[in-house]
Design a protein around this nucleic acid. Sequence first.
DNA 1: TTATAATTCATACTTAAGTATGAGCCGTTT
DNA 2: AAACGGCTCATACTTAAGTATGAATTATAA
Lengths: 161, 161
Amino acid sequence: MIFLKKYKTLIIYSISLALLFLLLKLGEYRLLIIDHSFEIYAGSIALLFLLLGIWLSRRIFAPKKEISIIETEKIVEKQVFITAPVPFVLNEKALSATDISSRELEVLELIAKGMSNQEIAGSLFLSVSTIKTHIANLFFKLEVTRRTQAVEKAKKLSIIP
Amino acid sequence: MIFLKKYKTLIIYSISLALLFLLLKLGEYRLLIIDHSFEIYAGSIALLFLLLGIWLSRRIFAPKKEISIIETEKIVEKQVFITAPVPFVLNEKALSATDISSRELEVLELIAKGMSNQEIAGSLFLSVSTIKTHIANLFFKLEVTRRTQAVEKAKKLSIIP
DNA sequence: TTATAATTCATACTTAAGTATGAGCCGTTT
DNA sequence: AAACGGCTCATACTTAAGTATGAATTATAA
């Protein structure tokens, strides 16, 4: 029975071909009796094989079930991430809309980590003055007045994780 | 020329069909001469139309480019859900482990919203002094020294969304 | 080449945040 | 009743954060 399942498609094809050749032979004998129906016969063959070709093609080239299952599984995998640590996808549209520069973004990320201006300055090898400038520009661009607000807004906009 | 482009596929199909019927007719006349080649002729028609069927089918039922783009867009839509608001589940174990009181938690939530001490005081009908005390206790319990750190840690512990 | 924007830094000032300490009030537990 | 913890508030101080302004440098686009 497992054998039948495994070669199911092959068997179907074989039987179909056998039946078609049988029809061909049958038609041949009928042709001997009614001589005038040749065109009808040829047309029938043409139509039959045309349909067979279409059917075969759909069977062979149609997206296989296995593939579609794999694709579904891929989507499921993505959904699994919803409850797991969420993979961060940067909202580039929001980022460009806010007009935040790359350096400002760096500073913003460090602010979000809870670092002080001094720590950020040390981390980026910059002076505290520079950090303050960047932060002031960030606040203007994010339309906020405090670093906690900046973090909150940036997270909402998916600019930072 | 736009007309040609628009109906390109249709024209190709029409010409193909016309050629095939021409072949059929040609074959018919040849059949009158060589009578014995009937089987070959029928087989040829069968093969021809089989191939035509396969070709047609591939043309018609092949995954269209537009569809594949739509499918890609669908995947993007799913990714949007990943970034969508994740249902918050409070980690009660972590909360009790930190020994944070209900009032302190309230303050912490407002800090996370980006509010200043003054705003929090106004929101909870308390003095700024009280807020500062709560925050100092919060920092001690969360083992941090800055409010941004407190928010970061509390979010990691799932004490706040 | 000039204009523009990003990046850097500084000074001076204001305000908010954070620290330390003490104390009063209230409900629960021992 | 006394002790305890949570909540409240205050004062005084230190430090960090935030604001405003100006300026030099550098790379890139017009």
